[in-house]
Design a protein around this nucleic acid. Structure first.
Lengths: 115, 115
DNA sequence: GTCTAACGTTAGCCACAACTGGCGGAAGAG
DNA sequence: CTCTTCCGCCAGTTGTGGCTAACGTTAGAC
């Protein structure tokens, strides 16, 4: 059975961050709001491509959008990064305390794990 | 060929973690070594597919491989996760701790922002 | 009203990533 | 030696993500 733990939130964030361009965009708007056009100007791909990246980032809730006339200002949402760090810890949840894990490794003889 | 001519950079790690299946694999071997076959048994894809996932994870240095006869035992490499957290911090370098960032946001008028 | 600027959206193309199936090599059992 | 198990590698197919180009929409200037 592959019901698999559903984690759309985490998955979206991971996938969004998997692209180098998107990470760069995120860096651009980490500290200041930038308009879509300004962001696009930082790359040599078309404005459309950047717009799609922005959509992906926004879907993952990594960006906040603010409209100012015809312009749309974007800014990174740090809360999401914090959430991602939590997700990383959860990924490692089975052995959160690393020190203990290493000790366990030394004497990995006894294990009562169910799978 | 020089040993380890390939140093897994941030991109590799992000891309490797972008796939839900790979994350699940990582969780499986977080605390105990598992053979490739055992890992494959946990999914309903073919053994080959899992083997390829393992290769990707190993390329990102997220796994360590140990051979025992015909079997190959895999285990997660926690150091890489730690490195990833560092990368996240760098991504967020301009506003590392949330508390301070929020305060900053409150008074972001102090910045050169003209709005 | 018209015109322009700044965006997002859609359709289609192309490259890559994930999958399946078949093959071959290495280690242990007989 | 043969036979089996365990596993990675290769070839081929399918699905998906990122790209461009053309179009639609909104807001402001005239």
């Amino acid at each position: 059975m592959t019901a698999a733990a559903r984690e759309p939130d985490t998955d979206d964030v991971f996938r969004a961050l998997a692209d180098p361009r998107r990470r760069q965009i995120l860096r651009l708007v980490a500290r200041e709001e930038l308009a879509a056009g300004e962001i696009a100007a930082a790359f040599d791909v078309t404005r459309t491509a950047v717009s799609q990246h922005l959509t992906v980032l926004r879907s993952a809730d990594l960006l906040t959008e603010r409209r100012d006339g015809t312009r749309r200002l974007y800014r990174a949402n740090p809360d999401r990064i914090a959430a991602l760090r939590t997700a990383l810890d959860e990924l490692w949840a089975s052995s959160l305390d690393l020190g203990r894990r290493l000790v366990e490794a030394e004497r990995d003889a006894g294990e009562g794990s169910t799978r």
